[in-house]
Amino acid sequence: MRSFTYERAASPQEAASAAARRPNAKFIAGGTNLLDLMKLEIETPAHLVDVNSLALDRIDPTPEGGLRIGALVRNTDLAADMRVRRDYGVLARALLAGASGQLRNRATTAGNLLQRTRCPYFYDTNQACNKREPGSGCSAVGGFSRQHAIVGASEACIATHPSDMAVAMRALDATVETIRPDGQTRTIPIAEFHRLPGDTPHIETVLEPGELITAVTLPKPVGGTQVYHKVRDRASYAFALISVAAIIHKDGTGRVALGGVAHKPWRVEAAETDMPRGAKSVTAGLLDGAKPTPENAFKLPLVERTFGAIIDEARG
């Protein structure tokens, strides 16, 4: 690990301005992903701004009937909150499908959104990776690509986003609240928060330097049967090959978002109008234009069948 200076921030704006003031500064909250990457010298911040003592660890009701989740709410606490379990089941299920008990106790809501990919070529510093070292190329293209993206990828990067939580939040139309170094705040719809790789895969979100996530807000509950189905190589404690977050109403309408298929949580609202017609037709719209590799082409039928099973289950 490279050495770094360290400070504890006292307020969100102070944290944002402290991070913006120094070149190569990073926020640290749970640290479960950042420290892993720092040990491998994939992340090499010169300065860490510890945000753990900021008062951003509450889940409060909003005037609109939704929930405002503080950036520092730990994954365990979010999944255990009775309002989330009752009204946003897809989110509780997604959180519980991720990582281990120890990691969920530390991992935060904001940090989960900012997780880096688990692409093995990103993790191996001997390999070319445009995300780790812009312009160096992509060893995953033409490499072992079983885990990689099938849709929305580019020639520069075929990595996937690893989060389960973010997929459920995409289905729930969450919004991300931030504060910038100058004290200005803004809200970003989750659909616009993560970027597709294009030719700048190292830029993963629309956050600006020093911009700090303060909360994630959920709109009022939408009801329906809420399911998160994660398909992975182990029954527990493994990243998704594919995952399906679905909200299905009694009349057959609903929403669906996918994990493990793209550089961001994947949702195509236009495809959801086909939901009463079943999984095949929705999946065709969702994964329209997919460009799988021979090694990950299995993800297309896997999405369709997993989604089909969810629909069958919801119909009882």
Binding site: Q102, L103, R106
Partner: peptide
């Protein structure tokens, strides 16, 4: 790297991987 759990300790009443925390 937080994968094996051998470093698990209890901090403020909660278990965590002590290897993935400063």
């Amino acid at each position: 790297h937080g994968q094996c759990g051998a470093c698990t300790v209890i901090v403020d009443g909660r278990r965590m991987n002590s290897c993935l925390s400063l």
